[in-house]
Simulated assay, not measured.
Amino acid sequence: MSEPFVDLGSVTTPSGVLVLGLGSWIDLWPELGAPLSERAGAAAAAGGGHLRDEECEAVAVPAAAGRPLRVRAATAPSWVTEDPVISVLEVGLGLPWTRAGDAPVLLGDLPVDRGGMVIGDGSGLDVWRGMHAEPADGLADVIYWGLHADDAHARFGGQRMPSPHGPWGRPDLPVAEAETLATEIEVWRGGLGSGRGVAVSVERHTDFYRAMQAGEKHPLLAGAVEVGGCRMLGIGWDPSDHSMLHRGGRAEGLVHPVTLETDGAGGTVLRWTIRPPEGEE
């Protein structure tokens, strides 16, 4: 590959199985049958493969168990936001390239998840707490924004919150207290048609939220978290870029190939190539 790559961080895979999956659904595999670790382990044992069950999708591959795995990305300017966006996501697997020749091995394809992507250990992800799960610490952030957010701040207090969740909020509240406060703000706001212009949300401290929060200040929205004794990486997506380029995902045929390839130095990488829209360079 000729693109310049930038480092996004590293992940660890004690089980020897690496998963790249849709973050919105990564914790829902057990509700559909076998847990992710079982499915991912079987795919990795076969050399790697694509997993799909209803809305849940992922790719699983074998990876080195005893070392951090480097995650990198090549970027291209988005013609929607003009900011750099990921065009190639690459994970060094820490394993030698053992296939005959240098031809890439197609494992399948993945859509770009509006809720972000997750890269992590196949077994560690069994304990991942998704966006609708209860937080391990029992806490949540209340965030409010909009035309009358400053008036809400004067009434309910709080502090500046990191973009894009700001401008105001009350962090680290017990979940029940956070939900009560959000209800009070909604009552104060009044009806959506004629009330004050304020939106409010309760963000539980799930692993999903922690990962997205960790990546807020990263130019490519990449943030690392520790889950189940493993270092994992969450990658967010700009809402405007996703809405214009990736909305509809698999249902609209907007999927992108995932391959195993040689790194040119005898090693193996997992590569997800996010193609530009048809007709765009």
Rank of each mutant, 00 (worst) to 15 (best):
M1K: 12
S2V: 06
P4T: 13
G9E: 01
S10R: 12
T13D: 07
P14R: 12
P14S: 14
G16N: 11
L20M: 11
S24P: 11
W25L: 07
W25D: 01
L28N: 07
L28Y: 09
W29R: 11
P30A: 14
L32F: 13
A34R: 15
A34F: 08
L36F: 12
L36Q: 02
S37C: 10
E38A: 14
R39Y: 03
G41A: 07
A42N: 06
A43S: 15
G49I: 07
H50C: 05
L51A: 12
L51G: 09
R52E: 15
E54C: 08
E55C: 04
E55T: 07
E55A: 08
C56Y: 05
E57I: 01
A63P: 08
A63D: 03
A64C: 12
V71N: 03
A73C: 10
A74V: 02
A76D: 02
A76W: 00
V80I: 15
T81H: 11
T81P: 06
E82V: 11
E82W: 10
D83P: 00
P84L: 08
I86T: 01
S87M: 01
S87Y: 00
V91I: 15
P96F: 05
P96M: 12
W97G: 08
V105E: 11
V105R: 14
G108A: 05
D109P: 03
L110N: 04
P111V: 04
P111W: 00
R114Q: 00
G116W: 00
I119H: 00
G120P: 06
G122W: 01
S123C: 14
L125C: 11
L125Q: 02
D126L: 04
W128Y: 15
M131P: 13
E134R: 13
A136E: 14
G138A: 09
A140N: 08
V142F: 09
V142Y: 05
Y144I: 02
L147Y: 06
A152H: 01
R155E: 14
R155F: 02
F156R: 01
G157W: 11
Q159C: 08
R160Q: 07
M161Q: 12
M161T: 06
G166M: 03
P167M: 11
R170N: 10
D172C: 09
E177R: 13
T180E: 15
T183D: 15
E184I: 05
I185V: 12
E186G: 09
R189K: 12
R189N: 04
L192K: 12
R196L: 14
G197H: 08
G197R: 08
A199V: 04
S201N: 07
E203N: 10
R204F: 09
R210N: 05
R210D: 04
M212C: 09
Q213T: 14
G215M: 00
K217I: 01
K217E: 13
H218V: 07
H218I: 04
P219Y: 09
L221D: 01
E226D: 13
G228M: 06
C230W: 01
C230F: 04
R231E: 08
R231Y: 02
R231V: 00
I235V: 15
G236H: 01
D238E: 02
P239N: 11
S243K: 10
M244T: 10
L245A: 05
H246I: 03
H246G: 03
G249I: 10
R250K: 15
E252W: 09
E252T: 09
E261V: 15
T262Y: 03
D263P: 09
A265I: 09
T268Q: 06
V269G: 02
W272M: 00
T273G: 13
G279D: 13
G279L: 13
E280P: 06
